[in-house]
Design a protein around this nucleic acid. Structure first.
Lengths: 197, 197
DNA sequence: ACATTTGCCTAACGGTGTTAAACAATTTAA
DNA sequence: TTAAATTGTTTAACACCGTTAGGCAAATGT
């Protein structure tokens, strides 16, 4: 029967409703303010229903985290595809990374445990940004025949500086660091790119 | 009467017992596992007693955070005082910073919100490390007559890279990044110091 | 028509931070 | 010395949390 399909579609929809409701609550009240009962309220059900779609609260966080990594990866790709030269690509990618962190701050928090006790098990999508970045870094360095280890190291150098700066900004979000952010971003990214060419 | 003194001393002691018990629990079970009732158990009281010493749980976290910053500042000073040249001092200080993060990881987490929804209001002691670092950076740069803003920017450049690297290590504590850590630490600190001389 | 499955809810358990009320012990005052 | 007031501590409770078990009612299958 076709009703089977409709029911399956409906189930899939409430599943995604749960995720949407959860993230909406987080954007209103922060990760601290997220509770199963609040999610249930928002989707007009009672709390136990959620457990037919997710085994527990952590599973919801994990799925949101996964979605976050997919969105980040997509934005990194789009940034990359706007340029031809790998140096320009890399700079655009880190800028996209930066933008993601401040457009979807709550996502960034759960993905990287900023002011938030985040998901324990790394989801598979978490690898995507790493692969995108190292591919471009490898392209820039191809003349010096770098090992994977060297590329990985360069990647983590970038990552440290950007993630550190993002984390500081999220925590002391009161202080205005606009000019300092721009300076450091420009200096650090530019500097490291120069150092690996 | 002298008994007043004894009682005051006793009160001060249970106050510090509460803090010690709290941190002991955190070192055993992580920040997630810390609860008022567990603290009470450990000091052999019941939970409401704690509220005569601290207005709420957050106040305990705040006080621990303050103690953390004081300890960090002390270790930074000790590292600095082992050297004469400001360049060497600065490197030693960042190394001490690094060591602090992995010796007192739980402290570092609550101080900087790593995988942990940390204290909201910045305590006064949080300024100490900033002042220690900027003083030495200013000394290194004194030939170029830098503004406070420029020094601040250099400080945050260091801070970003080190904190970022620390945060990554705390979150993916499974992966062995020993060699990468050393490389990045050496490269980044050395590189930035060179760039400001 | 009856039996079975499904969707959903109420109630509950053990836990959390926190507060109010009660009790006991100690100190103060008469 | 005895009565009053203060202090220390506990028990009980509230409102919330994540989670599970049981039951009711509607939809489905036979």
């Amino acid at each position: 029967m076709a009703s089977k399909d409709r029911i399956l579609r409906q189930k899939e929809e409430t599943r995604s409703n749960i995720l949407e409701a959860a993230y909406a609550i987080v954007k209103e009240d922060g990760w601290q303010g997220l509770s199963m009962r609040k999610i249930a309220d928002k989707i007009e059900y009672t709390a136990p229903i959620i457990y037919e779609y997710f085994s527990n609260k952590e599973a919801i966080l994990n799925e949101l985290t996964g979605k976050g990594f997919i969105k980040l990866a997509k934005e990194l790709q789009e940034a990359r595809d706007k340029f031809e030269k790998p140096e320009e690509q890399l700079e655009a990618m880190w800028m996209a990374y930066w933008d993601f962190a401040f457009t979807d701050t709550e996502m960034y928090q759960v993905m990287f445990g900023v002011q938030m006790n985040c998901c324990s098990d790394r989801c598979s999508a978490a690898e995507a940004p790493y692969k995108l970045f190292t591919a471009v870094i490898g392209e820039i360095m191809k003349n010096s025949n770098p090992t994977d280890e060297v590329i990985k190291q360069k990647y983590f150098t970038f990552f440290s500086v950007i993630h550190g700066l993002i984390a500081i900004n999220i925590i002391n979000k009161s202080e205005i660091m606009e000019t300092i952010n721009n300076q450091i971003l420009k200096d650090a990214i530019g500097g490291i790119i120069k150092s690996i060419q």
